[in-house]
Nucleic acid binder design. Structure first.
Lengths: 186, 186
DNA sequence: GCACTTACTTACTAATAAGTAAGTATATTT
DNA sequence: AAATATACTTACTTATTAGTAAGTAAGTGC
């Protein structure tokens, strides 16, 4: 059983990824958890603080995941990373980077900073996996690791968004294409 | 000199791509154009109608552009398409597909439908250019045209978003990588 | 010169937003 | 047993939201 505080973060996270930061309200959280509006304010001074907490929780989950994957081959680590994004699509959700990045200009500065740090953290990890994988000859690609990292994160972020908009399966197409791109030939 | 009606659509478009559909208000438009709140309602019955009009205007601009590009080589057409996305980055804006797609679940149905149709229109055009280009041997790629189309639209949509979040130039990396991907070798 | 339309403004409404101050019930500490 | 902290609720405030009803001023058509 989670504490109310943790439940609020979980619900806020889902609401942000389902509706966006500016479209969800304290009333949405309160009604879901059967508590009152003011109870949220007891745990979080402001919406900005709650929003920042949601990003922090996502960063912690990411760190946990990468630790779990650390014994995997480079290909499997990238694959697990891609699958982590795919899992967001449950309940009509997108990833937190897409949900918050798309309204970056309207976010309170503390959330902007946390989001930028989160992106940096993800990018540093992915570039490292790609570089090491190339060295170890577990994967191959003909562009720089930085370019490959941007291609993967961009592709996954957007295909979650476009999967909601489009009639066909954008996510599946992009996943397949990206993995094919780093796969060893012969 | 544009009519007030057209000015409202232009400003609404910029606001949507800068702040998102749920973060902009009639007050934002009114203050920019030095008119009153109610004047917007005179031209558009509701925010949903205005939002739909913004998508329609974008679709018309897209059709104009593709007509202008029709004499270009396949590579140059894809390049022009990518540059069209890049131009969105002025004034801290993203593309309308990213701005509206990321809050798809909160949009009124008429906007959802118009956005889905817009995506379909863009995809049909791009797949066609890619297929013809491959036939004419003006470009080359080792995946299907459908996969390549999804990779390009996803990459451009997301790199505009991540360019705001990231410290480094995601947009440049993705643009370069995508063009390299279809470029003829030798 | 009168009817009618166009393009607004003034003045408002009802709903919803985040946030707050003060009170309460329960458990924990001393 | 008294004091204190925890985890809320009740009741509210202030600001902002989209939207509306009624009025007006400047043209247009006849």
């Amino acid at each position: 059983m989670l504490s109310t505080r943790k439940k609020i973060v979980v619900i806020a996270d889902q609401l942000i990824r389902m509706k966006g930061y500016n479209a969800f309200s304290y009333a949405d959280i309160a009604s879901t958890l059967n508590i009152k509006n003011a109870a949220i304010h007891y745990h979080f001074q402001s919406k900005a603080v709650l929003g920042k907490e949601v990003i922090i929780a996502s960063r912690e989950k990411f760190k946990e995941n990468t630790t779990l994957w650390s014994s995997f081959s480079s290909f499997d680590q990238v694959n697990a990373f891609i699958e982590m994004y795919s899992n967001n699509s449950k309940n009509n959700c997108i990833c937190f980077m897409g949900a918050l990045g798309s309204s970056y200009n309207t976010l309170p500065i503390e959330m902007q900073q946390e989001l930028t740090d989160a992106h940096e953290e993800i990018t540093v990890w992915l570039i490292n996996v790609l570089k090491l994988g190339k060295e170890k000859q577990e994967i191959e690609f003909d562009i720089t690791a930085e370019e490959m990292s941007d291609l993967i994160t961009s592709g996954m972020l957007a295909s979650l968004i476009l999967d909601r908009v489009s009639k066909h399966a954008v996510l599946d197409n992009v996943k397949r294409t990206l993995l094919k791109r780093i796969e060893k030939k012969n």
